[in-house]
Design a binder for these strands. Structure first.
Length: 958
RNA sequence: GGGCCCGUGGCGGAACUGGCAUACGCAGCAGACUUAAAAUCUGCGGGUCGCAAGACCAUGUGGGUUCGAAUCCCACCGGGCCCACCA
């Protein structure tokens, strides 16, 4: 702001002073403190509205303007809902465990608890500067011992429960033990099992269990990663380091036990369809059949059954048949060979002595392949014949058994029946190795089965044996017929299969929640393999004090993981109990853990007795007064980025369902309504080497800053005289195009920032940041101010005169528009409506109070600081935060006369004014009577006249 | 390779259920007030032709349905996102 400006407009809107004043008042008065049921100031007569942001990760670099987009939106909703008479719960906290905090701490040589706290403080200051109406008394961080105590408690719930296959519900494992002891579980002789056997049986059912599984081991990070944290290129999402598959004993969560409910219950929530779809695809439910292929005579003999009966290993590994999963049992007669995954446990047993060498070579090569290689090789099919044969159960044909890496051990049974005629991959494989291709589905779309597989539906041919015939049946019937037959013969059964895998739940990190479990040690101090859970009363398990909390990175993929907690002294690691020694679990939980239930803790964040108080949980999650009642209950509005469509949202739903089944929470779903906001994008500039340069230092050929001309065609850009190319991408540190909200607040104020971000476009779309455009909404606020306050004299301009009809019409039309826009979260159009109204007020002679007050109330959720200040100038004492939203008087919406568009053959040719209540005949007559229209249709035959009441008339004449 | 979404002025976008295409804002142009600039106010603004009234053409391209299509259907072109040898 120049000096001259200050001189000539002494009482211009001083947003700095106003914003600071109101932010201070809100904090001092605790304007946005939210009462819980049971509190003295709780009003039970109001309905509730729980509006939540996906809480942020407190990074060291602070926020850029892309981060608060969703926070501003939820804040507007929260403020709006308060004026609509809701008790609004609107909290904020921090997801503060995890790799970046730890890495930041390592880089700066400071304990992560300290850097995390600094980052949180910095972020809170940034958020408060935007004027967000959070109840800061409920602030929490997942790293608080008071918080992760209860994260550990939820883990104990998981560890101590199982999913009952009878009804798919999570139940305490004690119930299962009681049934086992009573002999009520078929096929299990509990009394004959020793302690180890019993532990193994229960571990195989617990929702949290230890298992030796092939995991993504990242030596450079010194930790294992979830599948979701590994990129397509086989590298770590954080840091882009190579990741190797290797078997390690890790904690797993049995999310697959809930797969069908996690998929099915998506129907009940109000989420973007695209997000539901992504989650459904991730769960990957497919229906088909399991079919047993016995080994051919000569290949069955002498396989000793060495596996313990329980836990069961992959079907097929135990006895003779190879079990496959197929979605196309109707093509069973076309199965001409079988394929096992190279890691399949049956491979060694079936391979003939002659084929041992090539098979072992292939297995070794497959094991050495990274995901990158596998991707690159996806086009060409490789494999090796095992020398063994199996029997196709429908026609007793002997089919060769191959191994190939196009079959994955991790999906289905790790074995397939290959139907080259009707599966593209099998077709490619059969062509490569010259295996027979037998067509069993006929359809007009089949061209030549030698050239390409036909994978669509059709009618079965060549599909009959002595007992069953599919010939002539269309695909759906054929599927059912053959599945029924297989089931009757004991050769197979209908089967639902999921892509979803169990969730790898441990990390070799310091900065995560310690597990509340102990490993039993023998007299020599070696683990016995027995794991016991701590009691609730022993929580929290806090971190040991370490000097060196850094992960031990290595380049050697074979090096064993070294959890940092292993560096703690025995006084932390070793626990004595009942005369026995135990070692604490040295892994920690992954970052997702804390975010799986934080929305519940916000409801009752200081409760020391329970993870959340029951009454408060029922009120905020279940209330029958929930707005609209259109969704499954839970949080009324949850806003965050789509990047969490499958990870956080799936994990949290899983935990919630377990807590629901165990009776700890009252809704089956946590997030009744989800909204995914778009990204803020920005122009960025790269030099010849493709390296991004600081966007603020880039100028065009005329020396103008890039921000003033960005996105315009024909511009050339330079960074310190070096030519750079303009690109467009997500705003952030890596593209060096981040704009800080602090800068915008300093120059224009946070009301302007809020309005600008919302005015950019629809909330769910990605859209470009353009600093150049901010001035537009800032001018709007200045103009609003000048309508109320003379900027030369500071005189308040609002009168107590009765408003004229025209202003009242304008007001109520605007109320109708803005109310509708607010309900739809269409904030860009709500702002446009307010700008239009304000522009009209500029031209009006006077601003009557009856117009001014509702205008301020409508502006308040969007630009709360200026609204509060004007409200105070209007003579009100307190905050307007809880003032009722202006009501629309429909009487002012009806016009006496309306303008009707007259079209001839669908083209607009004129307009006529008719009384608003004119009937169709009258409107038609008025249109035909119009001079211009009459001349246009002169000499033509009017074939038809379409009248849309209140809108238009279309005359069809030729 | 499979699935999903999106293409509207120089730019961001509006038009929710088919019914005045381009609201509102930025940038631009002209004018007022200023010594001047900033700020502010007023006005103009899709394209082509025309002095004008107006006519014609315009919502990625080409078809279709309809009295009427940015909106619905089909094909193509361009961009984005998700999954990816999932049997």
């Amino acid at each position: 702001m120049t000096k001259a400006t200050e001189d000539t407009t002494a009482f211009r809107y001083d947003f700095h002073a106003v914003e600071a004043r109101w932010q201070r008042r809100w904090a001092e008065d605790k304007t946005f403190r939210t009462a819980n049921p049971g509190d003295a100031d709780f009003d039970p007569s109001k309905p509730k509205f729980y509006v939540l942001d996906m809480f942020p990760y407190p990074s060291g670099v602070g926020l850029h303007v892309g981060h608060p987009l969703g926070y501003i939106a939820t804040d507007i909703v929260a403020r709006y809902k308060r004026t609509r008479g809701f008790n609004v719960l609107h909290p904020m906290g921090f997801d503060a465990f995890g790799l970046p905090a730890e890495q930041f701490a390592v880089e700066h040589g400071v304990h992560p608890a300290i850097t995390t706290q600094q980052n949180v403080d910095n972020m809170v200051a940034q958020l408060k500067r935007i004027g967000l109406s959070y109840d800061w008394d409920r602030e929490l961080a997942t790293t608080d011992a008071d918080y992760y105590r209860w994260t550990q408690w939820v883990f104990l719930q998981l560890f101590n429960s199982y999913v009952d296959p009878a009804d798919g519900k999570a139940k305490p494992i004690d119930q299962l033990v009681a049934q086992l002891e009573a002999g009520e579980v078929d096929g299990v002789d509990w009394s004959s099992l020793d302690e180890a056997g019993r532990d193994a049986y229960l571990a195989n059912r617990r929702l949290a269990y230890l298992a030796e599984v092939p995991v993504n081991w990242c030596p450079a990070l010194g930790t294992v990663l979830a599948n979701e944290e590994v990129t397509n290129e086989g590298r770590s999402e954080r840091g882009n380091h190579p990741v190797f598959k290797r078997p390690l004993r890790q904690w797993m969560l049995r999310i697959t036990a809930m797969a069908d409910r996690l998929a099915g219950d998506l129907d009940a929530v109000s989420w973007p369809e695209a997000t539901k779809l992504m989650q459904r695809n991730w769960i990957g439910r497919s229906e088909g059949a399991q079919v047993d292929f016995p080994l051919a005579p000569g290949f069955t003999g002498g396989h000793p059954n060495t596996d313990p009966p329980d836990p069961p290993v992959k079907p097929g590994a135990n006895g003779d048949p190879i079990t496959v999963f197929t979605t196309r049992p109707d093509t069973l007669f076309g199965a001409t060979y079988m394929v096992l995954a190279p890691e399949h446990p049956l491979v060694d047993r079936v391979t003939t002595p002659q084929q041992k060498d090539p098979v072992n070579r292939y297995k070794a090569a497959a094991a050495a392949k990274t995901d990158v290689d596998r991707m690159a090789d996806a086009k060409t099919k490789t494999g090796v014949f095992t020398g063994a044969f199996a029997i196709n159960p429908v026609n007793n044909a002997e089919v060769p058994i191959w191994i190939a890496d196009y079959v994955m051990m991790g999906y289905g049974t790790g074995a397939i029946m290959a139907v080259p005629a009707h599966d593209t991959r099998d077709h490619e494989f059969a062509r490569t190795f010259d295996l027979p291709i037998t067509q069993v589905i006929d359809s007009p779309d089949v061209v030549d089965i030698r050239d390409a597989a036909y994978t669509g539906p059709g009618t079965n041919i060549r599909s009959a044996n002595d007992e069953v015939s599919l010939d002539g049946l269309p695909t759906p019937e054929a599927k059912k017929t053959i599945t029924d037959w297989l089931e009757a013969k004991g050769l197979g059964k209908a089967q639902v299969q999921y892509k979803l895998r169990d969730w790898l739940f441990s990390r070799q990190r310091y900065w995560g929640e310690p597990f509340p479990v102990l490993h039993e040690l023998d007299a020599a101090g070696q683990p016995t393999g027995r794991v016991i859970a701590l009691d609730e009363s022993e929580l929290p398990v806090e971190h040991p004090q370490l000097d060196d909390f850094a992960p031990h990175a290595t380049d050697d993929p074979e090096a064993p993981p070294q959890p940092p907690l292993g560096r703690a002294g025995d006084e932390w690691q070793i626990v004595e109990r009942d005369g026995k020694k135990y070692r604490r679990e040295l892994n920690t939980m992954p970052q997702w853990a804390g975010s799986c239930w934080y929305y519940l803790r916000f409801i009752d964040p200081r409760n020391e007795e329970r993870f959340v108080g029951a009454e408060a949980e029922r009120y905020w999650m279940l209330s029958e007064k929930a707005s609209g009642g259109t969704h499954a209950g839970g949080i009324d509005l949850y806003v965050g980025g789509v990047e969490h469509a499958v990870l956080h949202l799936l994990y949290a739903r899983f935990w919630h369902k377990v807590l629901f089944d165990l009776g700890h929470v009252s809704t089956p779903e946590p997030f009744g309504r989800l909204f995914n906001q778009g990204y803020i994008q920005a122009y960025c500039y790269r030099d010849d080497r493709g390296i991004a340069v600081n966007a603020t230092e880039v100028v065009n050929a005329d020396g103008k800053p890039a921000a003033e001309v960005q996105g315009q065609p024909g511009q050339r850009f330079f960074h310190h005289d070096v030519p750079v190319k303009e690109e467009y991408g997500k705003m952030g540190k890596s593209l060096k195009n981040a704009v800080s909200p602090d800068e915008v607040c300093a120059e224009f104020g946070c009301d302007t920032l809020r309005l600008y971000e919302m005015y950019l476009g629809p909330l769910d779309q990605s859209k470009p940041w353009a600093t150049r455009d901010i001035i537009g909404v800032h001018r709007f606020l200045q103009r609003v101010w000048r309508n109320f306050v003379d900027d030369q004299t500071d005189k308040f301009l609002v009168t107590d005169d009765a408003p004229g009809d025209e202003l009242l019409r304008l007001l109520h039309k605007t109320i109708a528009r803005v109310t509708d826009d607010m309900d739809r979260m269409s904030f860009n159009t709500a702002i446009a409506a307010l700008i239009e109204m304000n522009n009209a007020l500029v031209k009006a002679d006077a601003l009557p109070r009856a117009i001014a007050e509702p205008f301020v109330l409508m502006l308040a959720p969007l630009a709360p600081h200026i609204a509060e200040e004007l409200w105070a100038r209007l003579g009100h004492d307190g905050s307007l935060a809880y003032e009722p939203w202006p009501a629309c008087d429909e009487r002012y919406l009806v016009e006496d006369s309306v303008e009707i568009v007259v079209q001839v053959l669908g083209k607009v040719r004129g307009k006529v004014a008719v009384p608003a209540d004119a009937d169709q005949k009258a409107v038609e007559a008025a249109a035909l009577a119009d001079e211009k229209i009459a001349s246009l249709i002169a000499g033509k035959t009017v074939r038809k006249v379409i009248v849309v009441p209140g809108k238009l008339v279309n005359i069809v004449a030729n």
